[in-house]
């Protein structure tokens, strides 16, 4: 039978057990993952099983790393996610968190657009660091994503998105995430993208400020290719600021809607 060991195929006698494989291939391994799940006890292996052997705390070689990261994904999911190209319009509280989530699950390509630089007031919710204040957000985010998952291709556009440049910047995005701050910009983006790419899904957000209950943030499909996340009401204004928990909830609704769309599931 063939068993995949750290993503390399290996012929083994039928009935070979997990601990025997460890002893054979990597006796110092103390984390054993079989088909995406950590194994705590010895078990017989079957043809086409995927086994990952890790020594806790060890930094794997570049070649092994991607396989080890992918090992945590449900088999079959990784291939589909890796082939995806997702656009993110805006790299603030929503966009930076969506980008981190999609990079962690190994989305193959992200196209991220923003015109702003990192400011101290962003750090209460956005995925940047103090030492990145003053840097263009798209550059800072690209650097952070590379530290999280270097196997994601990140393309950046450092500038304002307009009805004229949206079709060009996101020409290769099969799904777009609307992650702007200003209401009129959100409407402009939805109108422009839907107009040029009516067959491509768009995941937008509206209503995520403040500290109202988490469960008022919902995902719903409002059109054939239009998904809307948020409570629809809570605008950012004096007395109702934007904060990491609820913006993060909305961002992860968006990221999960993207993942579900990539896997052919209904987003809501």
């Amino acid at each position: 039978m063939t068993v995949w060991i750290n993503e390399q195929p290996r012929e083994l006698p039928v009935g070979t057990r997990l601990f025997a494989v460890r002893d054979l291939c990597k006796p110092e391994a103390d984390v054993l993952i079989v088909n995406g799940f950590p194994a705590t006890s010895d078990q017989p292996l079957r043809d086409q099983d995927r086994v990952v052997l890790i020594r806790r705390g060890e930094r794997p070689s570049a070649g092994e790393l991607e396989a080890l990261m992918a090992a945590r994904h449900t088999p079959g999911v990784h291939e589909r996610v890796k082939g995806a190209s997702v656009g993110i319009a805006g790299a603030g509280g929503l966009g930076s968190a969506v980008a981190v989530a999609l990079a962690r699950i190994g989305v193959g390509r992200l196209i991220i657009a923003d015109f702003d630089v990192v400011e101290p007031s962003n750090l209460n919710r956005q995925q940047y660091f103090v030492d990145q204040i003053g840097l263009p957000k798209v550059e800072a985010l690209r650097d952070n994503l590379a530290r999280i998952n270097p196997y994601v291709k990140v393309d950046i556009f450092n500038g304002r998105l307009t009805p004229e440049n949206i079709p060009t910047v996101f020409a290769e995005a099969r799904i777009l995430v609307e992650a702007f701050d200003a209401a009129a910009q959100k409407a402009m983006l939805v109108e422009s993208f839907r107009r040029h790419f009516p067959e491509r899904p768009l995941v937008a957000a509206s209503g995520l400020a403040g500290y109202q209950p988490s469960n008022t943030v919902v995902t719903r499909r409002v059109g054939a290719q239009l998904v809307l996340v948020g409570d629809g009401q809570s605008a950012a204004r004096p007395g109702e600021g934007l904060m990491a928990p609820r913006v993060g909830i909305a961002a992860h609704h968006q990221a999960n809607a993207v993942l579900r769309l990539l896997l052919g599931e209904e987003p809501q």
Partner: peptide, 10 residues
């Protein structure tokens, strides 16, 4: 008709 009203925040 689908009317999507946006509020600010992101």
């Amino acid at each position: 008709l689908e009317i999507i009203q946006f509020v600010g925040g992101g």
